[in-house]
Amino acid sequence: MMRIVMLQICAAFVVAIIAACIGGYASGFSALLGGLSYAIPNALFALRLYAGTLKPGGASPVTFFVGEFAKILTTIALLAAVGWLYHDVHWLAFLAGFIVVLKSYFILLFRS
């Protein structure tokens, strides 16, 4: 699970560098914020799931579903916070960063 989280964080920085080279600093920062808006809640979810496995009974399905619900709410809150607090958002770069990080786990599926 941590490999996926690390891949997502790396993907966020790669997309940010590419966006900064194409569209400037604001585009790069927007892409980074978009990517981290998904990577951070996913990292917290992975940490919560790992902590659940350390309990004597192990992780339960309730732990998974509550964690997934919290991840979705945190992602929505971060997306809204970026849109509300950062006024120089380049929306195309922001969405590109978000989508690349969202789909980056496919890279690990095709690795041998």
Rank of each mutant, 00 (worst) to 15 (best):
Phe29Ser: 07
Cys21Tyr: 07
Ala19Pro: 02
Thr74Phe: 14
Pro41Trp: 02
Met6Leu: 14
Ile9Gln: 02
Arg48Asp: 13
His90Met: 12
Leu79Cys: 15
Gly57Gln: 07
Leu7Tyr: 01
Ser30Lys: 04
Leu92Gln: 03
Val101Pro: 00
Ala19Arg: 03
Ala39Asn: 04
Cys10Asn: 01
Tyr50Leu: 10
Phe69Arg: 08
Val82Ile: 14
Trp84Asp: 05
Trp91Glu: 11
Leu78Asn: 02
Gly34Trp: 01
Tyr38Ile: 13
Asn42Asp: 15
Cys21Val: 08
Met6Arg: 10
Pro61Glu: 04
Asn42Pro: 02
Ile18Leu: 15
Cys10Pro: 00
Phe45Lys: 06
Lys55Tyr: 05
Ile9Arg: 01
Trp91Asn: 11
Ile18Phe: 13
Val5Phe: 00
Ile72Asp: 11
Gly52Asp: 08
Gly52Asn: 10
Ile22Lys: 06
Ile18Val: 15
Leu73Val: 15
Gly97Ala: 09
Ala70Pro: 03
His87Glu: 12
His90Arg: 09
Ser112Lys: 13
Leu109Val: 04
Leu49Trp: 03
Gly23Met: 06
Pro61Tyr: 10
Gly23Leu: 03
Thr53Glu: 13
Pro41Val: 10
Leu36Trp: 00
Arg111Trp: 05
Leu102Glu: 12
Met6Trp: 08
Ile99Cys: 13
Pro61Trp: 11
Asn42Arg: 04
Val100Asp: 01
Ala31Met: 09
Leu95Glu: 03
Leu95Val: 14
Ala93Gly: 05
Ala59Leu: 05
Ala51Met: 15
Ala43Ser: 11
Gly23Tyr: 10
Leu54Arg: 14
Lys55Cys: 06
Ile9Met: 08
Cys21Phe: 10
Ala80Asn: 05
Leu49Pro: 01
Ser37Ile: 06
Arg48Phe: 13
Leu95Thr: 05
Ala51His: 15
Met2Val: 14
Leu73Arg: 02
Tyr86Gly: 00
Ser112Cys: 06
Glu68Ile: 00
Val89Lys: 09
Tyr86Ala: 05
Ile72Val: 15
Met2Phe: 13
Gly83Lys: 03
Ala51Ile: 07
Val89His: 03
Leu79Val: 14
Ala11Pro: 00
His90Glu: 14
Tyr38Arg: 08
Ser37Gly: 13
Leu95Cys: 12
Trp84Asn: 04
Ser60Asn: 02
